[in-house]
Amino acid sequence: MATVGPRERVSQGVLLPAESAEAIRAHLPSVADDVVAAIIAEIPGYEDDLGGRMGSTIRTAVQMALGGFLSLASGRRGSDPRTPTAPAVEGAYALGRGEARSGRSTAALLSAYRIGARVSWREMSGVAVASGLDAAQTASFAELVFAYIDELSASSVAGHDDELATAGRAREQLRERLARHLLDEAPAETVTLAAEEAGWAPPSTLTALVVPSPQVRPVLSALPPGTLAVTDVAGLDDAAVLLVPDCHGSARSTTLGRVADRGVVAGPARPWTDVRRSVDRARRAHALGLGGDTEEHLEQLVLTADPEALADLRARALAPLADLKPAAVEKLTATLRSWLLHQGRREDVAADLFVHPQTVRYRLQQLRELYGEDLEDPATVLRLVIALGALP
């Protein structure tokens, strides 16, 4: 009769003789204890967790996983001992999720699996050889043990990743809800509760940024981790609103400098519960086509706060020019604006307008004839400065 080799025995669902499997199974409780002890000794941070309920859970999981493997390797028909059973896979997956919730990385988890595989194999192989397992069977047994452990570790990593992704999405949703409450000026108690639920520590101030939609991700990566985001704001089809914590004082220029080339419009820093004021200013500057820091555009923002009132003021201020031809109005308006801004310095006005000083003198004479003594009246001068200050 032909001898059946180890790999053929695997394909038939049999690797271990019944006596070897039973001998190993009898030692599984001590194997699980040794695995836990080795993990505690070799991986910092596991001492406390594995000493209590978690340790008991790990011992049970090890016994279940290796017990399932032994069942497969010793004769479950049609089964591949390299592939864990559903309960073992589900247990490993749950373990990975639990590790993520505990704040540990996959590095610690995979180290624990490597240690577990090493200790398990050392213990089980010794028992198997003592029970009569030959060299070829022992080699195949080793290969399948480590393949089986690899499958379990992959399931745990998948659980870890899924838990982080789920927690990340939940946190993002809670933080977006908080941001919407802030934009909607919800009651203080509603906003405070939303911040607590989102695990978000309120800063001293928040600063609103209006960011072009394609730039949201790179801008977020350059901002503090507590930044809140709302990507679908009514009236901002092409942009999102980000709320940046503590972007005031010396931190403002540093923070905005990181995103200076991203088309960002930054509102002023405001107390965090009053950030809607910052949002409104940033949105208005965005609508006016003003980029960068709105602190650098305050004059323009003030002068354009009420466009209809500004148009009425300008019409009243320039009434003495109403009967002139458009070309003359344009020249005299530009001269009057420059004269006001340069405080009457004729040479500076000429340089500003790229004309001869004598031309400036002639135009100013025309303006004095049109306005008369009103050009010396502070109220008229103020009206003209406001009316003409918003012109490009």
Rank of each mutant, 00 (worst) to 15 (best):
S74C: 10
I115A: 06
M124G: 00
G52P: 01
S74N: 12
A154R: 11
S155D: 07
A112T: 02
Y113S: 05
A154N: 06
G98P: 00
Y93M: 06
S71L: 05
L95M: 08
L66I: 04
R122Y: 03
D162V: 04
P29Q: 11
A86S: 13
L144P: 00
F141C: 01
I39C: 14
G96L: 02
L70W: 05
T106V: 14
E123C: 11
D161P: 00
G132T: 11
L50K: 01
A147K: 12
A86L: 05
G45Y: 04
D150F: 11
D134V: 10
P81S: 06
P44T: 13
G168N: 11
T138H: 11
A147P: 05
T60E: 13
S131I: 12
V36H: 08
A167Q: 09
T166I: 10
R53Y: 13
R104N: 06
R59N: 04
L110D: 04
I39N: 15
L66W: 03
L50E: 05
D150Y: 13
I43Y: 07
T166S: 15
A128Y: 09
A108P: 00
T60R: 15
R77N: 10
H160C: 00
M54A: 15
T83M: 10
V89K: 07
G75L: 10
P84I: 06
T166V: 13
S156M: 03
A170I: 07
L133F: 11
G168Y: 01
E47W: 04
S30E: 15
A41S: 14
